[in-house]
């Protein structure tokens, strides 16, 4: 097993153990912390793995709903950000035009976007995806535009000397060089998206991980609420350690 994964598991294990010891000690001293034991949360997590859910078909239905919205929103935001970022990087006037808008979109809180979308188009799938795209696209645009500016001009010159068209220059010269910036943008967008999707589902949707967290909060049952919430953490870890690391290994194999 990868050494880094062992350290991550050890770190999480240590945290859960301390949590368990702390809550058991508090219970034995009759102190009500309103925090369940780690083992209770773990038990609820096992129920989730088995597919149990009080509403909806099963737990996987909710997980897949959130995952679908998350990926759609981040993909949409990333594509928009990539296009705007490339244009900003290549053309100074485009940068002047988009820069302030990017800041507006980057600084408006996700909850505000959620309310704006709900007011305009109602609480539906498009709202969740739209909120995600609106919040994540500036992250990609900023990174890509900066990336384009540090692209090796000698390679661009080489491409032009060989009569390369702009699409060929983009696909073979620019994009491979800005890939680290794109990866950074998608990573950050996913991390941001995981937080936001819970809010969007909590505010106005009738399924998904965020909705289930709201459901258990309404029941004032904290252990399953934390179990559902922890799924978001697992999603983040899955993307980082399974998806991104293996993609990076494949895409940057040319680095000596």
């Amino acid at each position: 097993m990868n050494r880094q994964i062992i350290y991550v598991i050890a770190s999480i294990g240590l945290f859960l153990s301390l949590w368990e010891v702390f809550t058991v000690t508090a219970e034995s001293l009759h102190i009500n912390l309103f925090v369940p034991r780690a083992s209770s949360m773990f038990y609820e997590l096992l129920r989730l793995v088995k597919g149990e859910a009080p509403v909806g078909a099963n737990s996987y239905f909710h997980i897949l709903q959130s995952l679908r919205r998350l990926l759609s929103g981040v993909l949409l935001g990333s594509v928009i950000g990539l296009v705007i970022g490339i244009v900003m990087g290549l053309r100074e006037r485009a940068e002047d035009f988009f820069e302030s808008w990017n800041w507006v979109f980057a600084t408006v809180p996700a909850v505000m976007w959620a309310y704006i979308f709900i007011l305009v188009i109602g609480a539906n799938e498009v709202t969740a995806i739209g909120v995600l795209a609106a919040v994540t696209y500036p992250q990609m645009a900023f990174r890509v535009s900066r990336g384009i500016k540090v692209v090796r001009t000698d390679l661009v010159e080489m491409g032009k000397a060989f009569n390369a068209t702009l699409p060929l220059l983009l696909s073979e010269v620019y994009i491979p060089q800005i890939l680290p910036h794109v990866f950074s943008g998608v990573r950050y967008s996913l991390a941001l998206g995981i937080k936001i999707i819970a809010i969007a589902e909590l505010v106005g949707l009738s399924n998904g991980i965020g909705f289930m967290m709201q459901y258990w909060w309404d029941q004032r049952n904290i252990a399953p609420l934390l179990a559902w919430g922890s799924l978001l953490v697992f999603l983040g870890l899955f993307f980082e350690f399974i998806v991104f690391r293996s993609l990076e290994r494949r895409m940057f194999k040319w680095v000596r």
């Binding site: 390679l155 491409g159 060989f162 060929l168 073979e172 040319w254």
Partner: peptide, 19 residues
Amino acid sequence: RLLEWRTLRENIIFALKAI
């Protein structure tokens, strides 16, 4: 001025594509 993310063969193919 080779594209470091392309193999030597792909670098030549880049020029052929461009022309």
